[in-house]
Design a protein around this nucleic acid. Structure first.
Lengths: 190, 190
DNA sequence: CTTAAAAATTGACTTTGGTTAAGAAATTTA
DNA sequence: TAAATTTCTTAACCAAAGTCAATTTTTAAG
């Protein structure tokens, strides 16, 4: 299962064989039950993850309502907002399925940076990739209405519709569950 | 005017006196006329900027309509999406006022990294700061409606209302110019 | 200063999402 | 399996944004 991380890393950076072995050797894999909260609002985020199996949802609570930021599924890294910054997190991270995740801590990262300096630049590149993805999400969110977002999601990540409750999808799309229900009805008629 | 960059950098990182001198010595300052397009969609973005005076707008065109991503004003860094990635830009950058900007190129950056390795970690931190800001913007955008965004902007960056045409503000808020007009009327009545 | 062009406002009408409330369907759990 | 809880759907009504079109105001150009 470690292969998935290597696959992901080599997609974005060039890893020497030596580093590949090091990554594999130092990777911690953990199982999490559905419903496990990995991070709560107000806590300091010191862990990042990589999804080998399952689904992690990030969200925050506004006016008592959950607003989904992102769904992380197989082969996606989970870097909470503010990870490693020592500032209280504004978001929650929750496993919405039984999940298998690799676990990475800021301490572990520091050690690795000292032992293997190439690691720092790899992490920089990864951060930049995430930033680019994030910016793209923002732009996409801004130029689309809920219906377009729904169709886009259906095209790009259809499996989410089987795995995620609709009220969570609704908050991800920026609408209320009732509106998502109507939207689906509307699309069915077309 | 170079002081502004130093002020900005020291706000987020700790710069040695030596590095401060280096930054000042290697800073290129340029004047741009209102209407200057710094980056076009499809071009490779190899330049980043820092606004000393004036205003830069980033936007993209969707279905023939401009959608404003951000307004950059005094003491803000302008890092185009995809800067230094060698991929065609999806956005435009335009000076919407006569502007004075510092100019930074990817080549120049590379040189600096070689000469002064501390620079790489400063840039990493800066990238992280920008990412954090960006994520905050996204969250804010998601939890607010156009009216709330308008009021927030009025509170946080009131000067934009004097400097930016309303149709650009409208696209920044995610609505049509007609709707912004009505929104303003509605707020006046309250 | 006048004219032309661009930007902002207004009105009528449509569409879409929010709200509230009720009920149906699906999922958990005892 | 039955009961309880959660999730989803539907309906009626309201508010806000989109659309189209016309008009006014402002700005830029000659």
């Amino acid at each position: 299962m470690e292969n998935e991380i290597i696959k992901y890393l080599t997609k974005h950076t060039s890893l020497s064989d030596e580093l590949i072995d090091i990554v594999i050797a130092s990777t911690i894999i953990k199982n999490y039950k559905k419903g496990t909260v990995l991070l709560r609002e107000g806590e300091i985020s010191k862990e990042s993850y990589f999804v080998l199996k399952g689904c992690v949802r990030s969200y925050f609570i506004n006016d008592g309502e959950e607003r989904t930021i992102e769904f992380y599924t197989e082969e996606q890294p989970v870097l909470p907002i503010g990870y490693g910054k020592g500032i209280p997190s504004g978001q929650y991270l929750e496993c919405i399925e039984d999940s298998v995740l690799t676990l990475n801590t800021t301490e572990h990262e520091k050690e690795m940076f000292l032992k293997y300096p190439q690691f720092e630049s790899i992490c920089r590149i990864m951060t930049e990739v995430m930033m680019a993805n994030f910016q793209e999400s923002f732009v996409n969110y801004k130029i689309t209405n809920p219906e377009e977002r729904y169709l886009f999601l259906q095209k790009e990540r259809p499996y989410l519709f089987q795995r995620v409750p609709q009220y969570q999808l609704a908050s991800y799309l920026g609408i209320k569950p009732e509106s998502l229900s109507r939207l689906r009805k509307r699309l069915n008629r077309k």
